[in-house]
């Protein structure tokens, strides 16, 4: 069973739909007891970081997530919240990944929206059977700085970290659920860990 953490941060319809398309049993919850029963956890997020962290605190999920040992995938804001802190609302994150999240400089159109290529490290299982430099769909105004757990990089205005892995914790800046067949493949890779 796959759990999607529902903490009121944005729309989770798309991620729910693609998991159903993959014939998986899905629960959408913010209850710790139910999350404990899941084999894997997906942590989506769209919206404001401060509001999202407040919700995690309200549901008493911060420590629970930090201590998880099962495969965990943060998507978009989900990835950013896995980091130490973010400039969005000057918010403290979950500190799973020791990296800062900063606002993209306004040298170009913000948000970074559309398809952009992702250059991944060769030995990562998340990108297994996905062609190097495939395009994924991004929508974001903040970015994760390059760090020691970075497994993929992309470039828009500057080079940023587009995927991370630390033990059982995975995170991606793009939206695999909106990235066509390559996105679906990436989710399948995560789900078969």
């Amino acid at each position: 069973m796959i759990a999607i953490i529902d903490y009121g941060a944005g729309n989770i319809t798309s991620i729910k739909n693609i998991l159903k398309l993959l014939n998986l049993e899905v629960i959408i919850t913010n209850q710790k007891e139910l999350l404990k029963q899941a084999d894997k956890i997906i942590f989506p997020g769209v919206g404001h970081a401060k509001y999202a962290m407040q919700k995690l605190q309200d549901y008493d999920l911060i420590e629970f997530i930090q201590n998880l040992e099962k495969p965990f995938l943060g998507i978009c804001l989900g990835l950013q919240l896995m980091c130490t802190n973010t400039e969005e609302g000057n918010t403290k994150g979950l500190s799973i990944i020791p990296a800062k999240v900063k606002k993209l400089p306004s040298d170009d159109i913000i948000p970074h929206m559309g398809w952009n290529n992702v250059h991944y490290q060769d030995d990562t299982c998340l990108f297994k059977d996905i062609m190097q430099d495939s395009d994924f769909y991004f929508v974001h105004s903040y970015y994760v700085e390059p760090n020691e757990y970075c497994i993929a990089k992309s470039e828009y205005i500057l080079e940023f970290c587009s995927a991370v892995q630390k033990d059982n914790f995975y995170g991606v800046q793009f939206h695999p659920e909106k990235s066509g067949n390559v996105g679906k493949k990436l989710l399948e890779n995560f789900l078969s860990l």
């Binding site: 729309n11 319809t13 739909n17 159903k20 398309l21 769909y137 659920e177 066509g180």
Partner: peptide, 28 residues
């Protein structure tokens, strides 16, 4: 459409208020 489409899509036409917006976004 949202159940099968793996790329982003926009819906427009006849949106009158916030509850229309919410219903369309939550439909996917």
């Amino acid at each position: 459409v949202a159940e099968v489409l793996l790329i982003p899509f926009t819906v427009g036409g006849g949106i009158r208020n916030l509850s229309d917006v919410e219903a369309i976004l939550y439909a996917g």
